[in-house]
Amino acid sequence: MKFSNINKIQEKLKQDQFCALLTDIQSGRQIFIDKIKDITEVKDEKAKKKIASMVRAGISGLIEESNLFLKVYSPAFRIILVGSVHISQYLVPMAKLVGFKIILIDPRKFFIDSYQMSDVEVINEWPDEVINKIGIDSRTAVITLTHDTKLDDPTLVTALNSECFYIGALGSKKTHQKRLNRLSQMGIAGKKLKRISGPVGLDINAKSPQEIAVSILAEVIKMKHEIAGKE
């Protein structure tokens, strides 16, 4: 591998974009793939198509009937977290450790000032406005943790209208039922509402904020792979 390729990969990942290296494992020749049109070295149309689809899906592997190996470098999956709360203090570093990129939003200045977060800047704006600005794709999870309907509900509506791979909302079974009723009254179909995981997280009898953070992160990981498997 050329040292210069490491810089190219780092640059692309910083911009949340896919890139890949295509290596001829016999000769050691290697090309950096930024855009699909870069695959000019491969003459076989079938192989070319295969490589393009692997880059898009983030799958590395050998290309059949060739000496070529494709290594795809995928940008991090993102978690949009609404609520600078006690659970976030643990969920943020845990999720970062696992490789997620965190976007933490809370319009309540006094919450931001109280709960110190390590290694993340809290966006002090209305969550739905921020989310509309940055956009949600299929590699994004959205989690509401505020317990405040003014903040959680508009976030959930925005998330439900997107192709995000996971939606979670903190709150007891009772709270969740009330939430579903509110969203249903806003005209959101019951089938759509099933996308919201509530109470949020895998059921591991979590009690403390630290444990709840583990249960949420576990569910996000599970959904990430379930959806990746379907593609």
């Binding site: 591998m1 040292f3 490491i6 810089n7 990969i9 780092q10 990942l13 970062k96 450790l97 490789g99 290694d119």
Partner: peptide, 12 residues
């Protein structure tokens, strides 16, 4: 930053 543990970044 755990990205720093990525092998290619360690190589860098």
């Amino acid at each position: 930053n755990y990205d720093e543990l990525e092998p290619i970044y360690v190589a860098k």
